[in-house]
Each structure stands twice: as structure tokens, then as C-alpha cells.
């Protein structure tokens, strides 16, 4: 048998042993046995010195090929064994991924706060400043400067918590109209402000009445502010809160501090105008009150109604939240049941 045949034999023998190796130890044994310094291949190569100078390089080259083939086969088998082992281990580590994750601490803003923030952001984006006033107000700012003298019938509509005959819990955020008008420097441009906050009425709490609720007031006064601007602004507010596809309807209303006064309705988002229990089958939902600032209000705040004019609007975040989420009891907003508070996920 020539060396070449011997080598071939060793190769076949070695490949067979590699294939039969099932763990890292046995594959290591094969490597040492076949490729080691005392291994058969080395031995064969030692016999080369008996060969002719012509045959020697041929056999040498073949021996190297055999060695490379065996090395490759051993490496491949080792990888196979290793990955099988790892897979087995990973399999053992498998868990039920449907078990619940750990709780983490994360609170949520109150739903009314969410609506207020949404509105404030909208108006700040349109160049308004935010001006919160006092919750304890003077009769003068809450009523008189808003064209509501002492005997005005509209005062009956909003029963008031008085502290003294001149001091009261504000019944509306409108006092900030008079206060900002008094202090605004019109030489620096028009007044554009929103005033969110708590207001109070002398009401008995029930599902639809609360002695405490919220309002967001808006006021824009300048030299060129029109009713068309009011209409455009109200449409943006309604669409921001309730969606673009809804129609806005203005209808005449009455507020002592605006003239003309309007009420803004939107298409009922529940029935899309067909009529349902939410909209009392009118197809419309009243969302806010507004109007062109009454000249008396401007005059009383020291602003010339001949030169300046504009609009004001007021809306109720509590009512919005009730409409938007179908909350049926206004008291839910102030009792702070954690199961209630944690339902209002912020979207975006």
C-alpha cells in the first residue's frame, strides 16, 4: 500500500470518527488522535523521506489536503455540538411569556387637566398668553366690570358663594377679562389670552351639578378683530377637541359681557347629527359660549371701544370630559376614585 492510499484510508477513518463524535470531549480526542504530533498522519509524513524527489511534493500536498479536510470536519462538528448544547440550554430556560409583567409606578394626569392642557397648548400655539386669576374675587371684577350691575337678572342664573358683600368665590373665569384689559399695554400689540381655572357656584351637588367646576376663558382684543375671527377660532377649538369632521353651528345667545353673543354647537359626535340621547335628539351638542366684547366692558376697563374691539369665549372642561368620555356623574371628577382616574390614557 502506497503512502497515498494510506493517507486516503486515514482520511476516511478520521471523517468517520468525527461524524461519530457526540460531545466536545470525543471530538477533542479525535483531533489529538488524528492530527497530533504522534498521530498517524505525522507518521505517514515521516515515511516520506523514502520517496523519490518527484513523488515527495505530490504526497506532501495530498497529506496537507487530508489534514485540512479533517481539521475542517472537526471544527464543523464542534460547532454543531456546541450549538446543540446551547439550544438545549435555552430550551430549558424557556418561560411563560404570557405571565404578566411587573408593575411599575406611573401616574396619570386628571382627565380635566388633560383637556385644559390640550386647550392651553392649542391657544399658546396661536399666540395667546395664559393668565390665571384668583379664585376668590371681588364682586366688581366677577360681575360689575362685566356689565352685570347688582340687580342684573343674569346674576340669578349663577348663584354665588359670597364671603362678604364685595368678596366672593368667582362664578366664572371671566373676571380675568376685566383684569387683563386693565393692565394690557395695547401699544405692544393685541391682547390674546386664555384663563383656565376653577369656578364655584352655589349649587347642590348631584350627577349634573357641582359647586366646583372648571372653565377656560379666552379674550382677544385689538384694532382689527372680527366676528369672522371668532368663528374661525371656535371652529379650531371644536375640531381640536372633538375631531375635524364635525360641523360647527353658531346661534344667538345672551351674555351681559358680549354683544353679539353666540353659543357654539357641534354636530353630535355620537349620532353624527341623526339625533340620540346625548344630544337630546337635536343632532347638536352645545360646547361653548362666546361673543364680541360688549363696549361697556371695554369702557369700564379703560379701553376705547371705538378704537379697540374683539371677542371672548368661555368653555367648560368638565362638560367636555363628560361628553367626550360619556361620564354620567360630574362628582366622579372630584372624588378621585383611583379606578376612575387611571382610565384616561393620554393619546400622544
Amino acid at each position: 500500500m502506497g503512502l497515498q492510499d494510506k493517507l486516503n484510508d486515514l482520511l476516511q477513518q478520521g471523517l468517520k470518527q468525527v461524524e461519530e463524535s457526540v460531545n466536545l470531549d470525543s471530538i477533542n480526542d479525535v483531533r489529538v488522535k488524528m492530527l497530533g504530533k504522534k498521530g498517524p498522519i505525522t507518521e505517514v509524513l515521516r515515511g516520506m523521506r523514502d520517496l523519490s524527489s518527484e513523488e515527495r511534493p505530490k504526497v506532501g500536498q495530498f497529506a496537507n489536503e487530508v489534514r485540512d479536510q479533517l481539521t475542517a470536519a472537526i471544527d464543523e462538528q464542534r460547532l454543531k455540538i456546541e450549538s446543540a448544547k446551547l439550544n438545549e440550554q435555552l430550551k430549558k430556560e424557556a418561560i411563560d411569556v404570557t405571565l404578566p409583567g411587573n408593575s411599575v409606578a406611573q401616574g396619570q394626569p386628571h382627565v380635566i387637566q388633560q383637556i385644559i392642557d390640550q386647550l392651553v397648548d392649542l391657544f399658546v400655539g396661536m399666540g395667546y398668553v395664559v393668565a390665571e386669576g384668583g379664585e376668590v374675587e371681588e364682586d366688581r371684577y366677577n360681575f360689575e366690570m362685566l356689565n352685570l350691575p347688582k340687580d342684573h337678572p343674569a346674576r340669578d342664573m349663577q348663584d354665588t358663594f359670597y364671603v362678604t358683600p364685595e368678596i366672593l368665590m368667582r362664578t366664572q373665569t371671566s373676571p380675568m377679562q376685566a383684569r387683563t384689559l386693565e393692565t394690557h399695554d395695547f401699544s405692544k400689540g393685541p391682547l390674546k389670552m386664555v384663563s383656565p381655572g376653577k369656578v364655584y357656584r352655589r349649587d347642590t351637588d348631584d350627577t349634573t351639578h357641582s359647586h366646583q367646576f372648571h372653565q377656560v376663558e379666552g379674550l382677544v382684543i385689538g384694532k382689527h378683530i372680527t366676528m369672522a375671527d371668532l368663528k374661525g377660532t371656535l371652529e379650531i377649538v371644536a375640531q381640536e377637541l372633538f375631531g375635524d369632521e364635525l360641523e360647527v353651528r353658531l346661534r344667538p345667545s345672551y351674555f351681559p359681557f358680549t354683544e353679539p353673543s353666540v353659543e357654539a354647537d357641534i354636530t353630535c359626535f355620537n349620532c353624527h347629527g341623526k339625533g340620540c340621547s346625548i344630544c337630546k335628539s337635536t343632532g347638536w351638542i352645545e360646547v361653548l359660549g362666546a361673543g364680541m366684547t360688549h363696549p361697556n366692558v371695554l369702557k369700564m376697563a379703560g379701553v376705547d371701544p371705538e378704537e379697540y374691539g374683539g371677542f371672548a369665549f368661555g368653555l367648560g372642561p368638565d362638560r367636555f370630559a363628560m361628553l367626550k368620555y360619556g361620564v354620567t356623574d360630574i362628582r366622579d371628577f372630584y372624588q378621585n376614585d383611583v379606578r376612575f382616574l387611571t382610565q384616561f390614557d393620554q393619546k400622544g
Binding site: P190, M227, D229, T233
Partner: peptide, 23 residues
């Protein structure tokens, strides 16, 4: 306004907005 119809009044936004809105 009401006899002309609020529906017929155009929708615009206040034009003269030189002021900055911010918290």
C-alpha cells in the same frame, strides 16, 4: 349678524399676531 346668518359669516383667524404665546 343673525338675520344675515351666522352660517354666512366667514371663518378667519385674527391676523395681527405680532405677539408670542408661551407659558
Amino acid at each position: 349678524a343673525r338675520i344675515f346668518g351666522y352660517d354666512n359669516i366667514p371663518s378667519t383667524l385674527p391676523s395681527q399676531t405680532s405677539n408670542v404665546g408661551r407659558l
